[in-house]
């Protein structure tokens, strides 16, 4: 009869035997496939930088505002906007504050970072360039985020991002919905097809507050809305960069579906799903208890202004 220690010794010796080197042909095959393997950009990731005291970002944003203001002063004298940086308080009656506000029929693309001038923009949702594009009216006081298409965040003017709010647009076609938002790596998953199925799968997630999916109209198309709330009794810690870790959840993240992890306790996500051809788009308006009262109505107005080409 082997002792426990003897078994461990023998198993360890046995594991030491055998192949250790990766054949070059396997490595070459991987590297050959890189150009055809697009990286998944983290447009669902927690935003961090807009509310962080990052001197580089601030300098870049300030320089961008200055350039835009100078260009506007030079070429758009009739546009009597202030030309300065956007106010940090969103206005219920949007007025142009940056010369970047579009004046021609060719709409600018929504910037992925920095202040956004009030106006109408084109959005190419991640992964759908060439398939679908959107236009959206954006009031003053908002920022692009995360170098990603379709992120607009409110700069609450505070250092903590939990005082912000955002709308993001993306393609959820083929994404996995987790059976449990906290135990998302160890729970059964589903791959719902279409807006209705996606909303239903989210509403069925246990352990979180979810509204019943209801029919809505998005950009003139039939869609479905579901509101999900992150529980307020989960244990979290704050990382050095201000991001939250949900300590009892898989990988420290609280997730609804593939790649979509949430940023804070009591976070409210209003998901609006709509089928466009064979793709399912989502508009996610999310906010926190600390978000300004005016933020969500403005985000809803942005959504109401969306037109899909």
């Amino acid at each position: 009869m082997s002792t426990e220690r003897e078994t461990t010794r023998v198993v360890r010796a046995w594991l030491e035997e055998g192949v250790t080197a990766l054949p070059d042909r396997v490595l070459d095959a991987v590297l050959d496939q890189l150009p055809a393997t697009p990286q998944r950009r983290p447009w669902w990731r927690a935003w961090r930088s807009p509310y962080m005291n990052n001197p580089v970002r601030i300098a870049i944003a300030a320089a961008a505002v200055l350039v835009v203001a100078l260009v506007g002063y030079e070429f758009l004298p009739s546009n009597t906007g202030s030309g300065g940086p956007p106010t940090t308080t969103p206005s219920a009656a949007p007025s142009p504050t940056l010369a970047a506000a579009p004046t021609s029929t060719v709409l600018p693309t929504l910037p992925g970072s920095g202040p956004i001038g009030a106006g109408k923009y084109t959005i190419f949702p991640d992964g759908l360039r060439g398939y679908v594009s959107l236009t959206m009216e954006v009031p003053a006081g908002w920022e692009g985020c995360c170098a990603a298409p379709g992120w607009i965040v409110y700069n609450g003017g505070a250092s903590a991002w939990l005082t912000g709010a955002a709308i993001l647009v993306g393609d959820v076609t083929g994404l996995v919905v987790y059976g449990d938002s906290c135990r998302w790596q160890s729970s059964p998953t589903s791959k719902p097809v279409g807006a209705d199925a996606f909303a239903a799968a989210l509403a069925a997630q246990p352990g979180r507050q979810a509204s019943q999916p209801r029919a809505v109209t998005v950009a003139g198309l039939p869609g479905v809305h579901v509101r999900l709330t992150v529980p307020d009794d989960l244990q979290t810690t704050t990382q050095s960069d201000g991001d939250l870790t949900f300590v009892d959840c898989d990988a420290g993240e609280y997730r609804s579906f593939d790649g979509r992890h949430h940023q804070g306790l009591s976070q409210i996500d209003d998901f609006y799903f709509v089928d466009v051809g064979s793709r399912t788009l989502v508009f996610d308006i999310f906010s926190f208890p600390g978000s300004p009262a005016s933020a969500v109505p403005e985000l809803e107005a942005m959504l109401a202004s969306v037109e899909i080409d």
Binding site: V19, L22, P23, V26, L27, A29, V30, Q33, L34, T37, P38, Q39, R40, R41, P42, R45, A46, D243, G259
Partner: peptide, 20 residues
Amino acid sequence: AEDATQQALLAIWRDLPTLR
């Protein structure tokens, strides 16, 4: 194992931007 390692390396490349 070779297939798994190859797939893993490609998955690492694909998902790297999501590594926090």
